[in-house]
Amino acid sequence: MASIGLINYATFMGTMIGIYGVLALGLNIQWGVTGLFNAGIAGFFAVGAYLSALITASPSPERIMGWELPVAVGWLGAMAGAALIAWPIGRICLRFRSDYLAIATIGVAEVIRLVLRTEEGLSGGARGITGVPRPFGGLEYSLSQFAYFALVIAVLLVVYWALERQLAAPWGRMMKAIRDNEQAAAAMGKNVEKRRLEAFVLGAAVMGLAGALYVHFMRAITPEAIDPMIATFLVWIMLILGGSGNNRGAILGAIIVWIIWSMSEFITDQLPAEIATQAKYIRVFLIGLMLQLILRFRPEGLLPEESGQRTSPHLPPSR
């Protein structure tokens, strides 16, 4: 009995790591490869989750859509939706230093949260959207969990493979040249803006896909399901710890950080109730501190970008 519980728990962990791994890969395109600071990861994730849910769930009189389309359509919709939101933001902000993009993406995430909380016809209100179909959902519980875990890992590998290919192509080499050499970047002018926009939109689409993976795993979603700042922040730590610019580093970071994060929850769950609520915030404090320490002592991460790929020894550009 205990072993089945353990296997189920491991499967759950593995699935969450896979989903966060996809998020970290999305951020790696934006930050690691292009040097763009997206502080609204949770917003793109939420858009993907809701869109995929609305496209695939059954209709309900309380909200719109519910088209009962295949899950694959939901995933494509999630990617398209996140990309569509990223595009105008990128168009406006990518002309400037990434500080502006950071505040704008915080704003986007905030507005998305407001819309989901306010427009009950869209989000199903406080009850959220339930009955989201899951591939292999008809199987027995453990088996279904495991099958979905395998699917998430497959998606992660496909995204990884696609990104590696993209980075090895002229596109990827150009992105890194832009990131590492401001003057070369400036000389390319308008072209740079376009390349950056492509990277930003592509990264957002990957984040939307992660949201879709999440909602079909949970089979339901409410506006309060994820804390936007903590989710965004975890992805950042995953990428920076794992190694900005290195896709394998992004996945390694997702594994390590998610394990630390859920183990710390496991510990605080054992605490008496009155301390337990505070312990949650201590955990948040500690991941904030972890970021400071990584930035100071190991900014290149555990798996640094291969030196052949980097055109200068510095981290992503200052503007």
């Binding site: 040097g35 600071f37 502080a39 230093r97 990434s98 500080d99 950071a102 700042m229 903590i230 922040f233 950042w236 920076i240 505070q278 915030y281 201590i282 948040v284 404090f285 991941i287 904030g288 501190l289 970021l291 400071q292 930035l295 900014p299 510095h314 981290l315 992503p316 550009p317 200052s318 503007r319």
Partner: peptide, 24 residues
């Protein structure tokens, strides 16, 4: 002495740390 954007990222984390101290 490092790219400024790293300080921006650090400050996002500092914000979370300050908030959690207040919450505790």
């Amino acid at each position: 002495s490092r790219p400024k954007i790293l300080t921006v990222i650090a400050s996002l984390g500092i914000g979370m740390m300050l908030r959690s101290v207040v919450q505790v």
